[in-house]
Design a protein around this nucleic acid. Structure first.
Lengths: 224, 224
DNA sequence: ACAAAAGTGTTAAGAATACACCCATGT
DNA sequence: ACATGGGTGTATTCTTAACACTTTTGT
């Protein structure tokens, strides 16, 4: 390495998913500056020397969306994009992350950039190559929930089997057979029944279940 | 973004695999500078502004190992590591790539850094967190060959079914049943028979096959 | 004729799919 | 009593896994 070394600009972009109204939704902010001024985009920003890209992601999420990274129940690095010229000053490299959680309430104020969760089937046009990044994240998520306990991030600590199935269906984008679903989810050993029931409406109460682990766990493949 | 922005140091590291002597082997170089002077490491180096990380990878491979990236038959980005302090000057971010090919001959000269292919079961101690990176790459490779045509990168354009099976076994690290292997590989539709045979030794000649596509293709999962 | 690798099919077990009725509750 | 979502089992098809002998060639 010589003394004239100039590193490229490094940025981070986050794809934050949660379920809203039984649909998968992604967090977007509205840009306040050029390029793509006023367009919707993933929350992202610069990563500086002396912080990890995860730390940069935390800082950016807090600044642009008023969300704390500690409220995310699953975080995973996705991919590093470096083909798009995102900054007029030249070549930029963007490390992307996927975050999953429940009950996220982005803070809309004059300090943030109109952070809003959009249902995946009603996405606005996105800045940069962010539509590609969302697509990539969705593929990863779909694949991830078929061999890990990653859905746990979308559900309360205890939940009914119907809630769990609805979560899978929202993410996978198609419906599942109730009996086969219960058979397979039981076979994974990822969840356990509790002694509690959830009563709502004029019908039989539903047994509540929990995930045995909140930390990432592998399992046998489930649900094509 | 303000004027005091300082990007972190950006590096690339490559995990280059090929089969040698029916075993999976990885390319290492011997470091000539501190830190980890004289230790074996993955070929890596700085990525500068104005080049993509792929271009940086090509430059570094050529400089340190005398290999041309156009001779790689499969390249894929793996993961971006940014937790290891690899440079005394501070925090560094490393984008890693996996490359696969056949008949790679690294150039050992005074300009390169003793580039050598090591069988995976005889790896020396590696600098930095490079053992982790190799392990990560191996997992990715094992998974990749079970649902894509990625093995094609390790084989000549036409090959026998036994050669193909030996390649799978070398990568997966365990042996496979010959009849079941042929049944499954046939079912993927990834390969097609040619009219040629390969004669070697005092036994029945083996039919030669080709991959239908050299470009990345998905298929049904094969070979646990 | 023998040695050496190529080639080929069947059976059994397990996994995936399709499918319909009874249960517990509130009104 | 009825409406609503919760809960359960079986039969069929498909997939996987285990396993051994015949074929073609060179010497």
């Amino acid at each position: 390495m010589n003394d004239t070394y100039e590193p490229p600009v490094l940025t981070v972009d986050s794809v934050i998913f949660q379920l809203l109204d039984n649909k998968l939704a992604v967090l977007l902010i509205q840009r306040t500056n050029e390029p793509f001024k006023d367009q919707w985009a993933l929350p992202g920003g610069y990563s500086a020397a002396g912080e990890t890209t995860r730390e940069a992601m935390a800082r950016v999420l807090s600044a642009k969306a008023g969300l704390q990274v500690k409220d995310l129940r699953f975080i995973e690095q996705l991919y590093t994009f470096d083909t798009v010229a995102r900054d007029p000053r030249g070549h930029a490299v963007s490390v992307t992350y996927m975050g999953l959680s429940i009950n996220l309430k982005p803070l809309v104020s004059e300090n943030t950039q109109k952070p809003t969760f959009f249902s995946l089937d009603k996405l606005p046009e996105l800045a940069y190559d962010h539509a590609d990044i969302v697509h990539y994240a969705l593929e990863r998520l779909r694949s991830k929930i078929t061999y890990t306990n990653a859905v746990h991030a979308f559900l309360p600590t205890s939940f009914t089997l119907t809630q769990l199935q609805v979560a899978y269906e929202a993410i996978l984008g198609h419906s599942l057979d109730k009996r086969n679903f219960r058979k397979k989810i039981g076979a994974t050993g990822l969840i356990k029944p509790t002694e509690k029931y959830y009563q709502e409406g004029a019908h039989r109460p539903a047994r509540l279940y929990r995930f045995k682990n909140q930390t990432p766990q592998e399992s046998v493949p489930i649900f094509g």
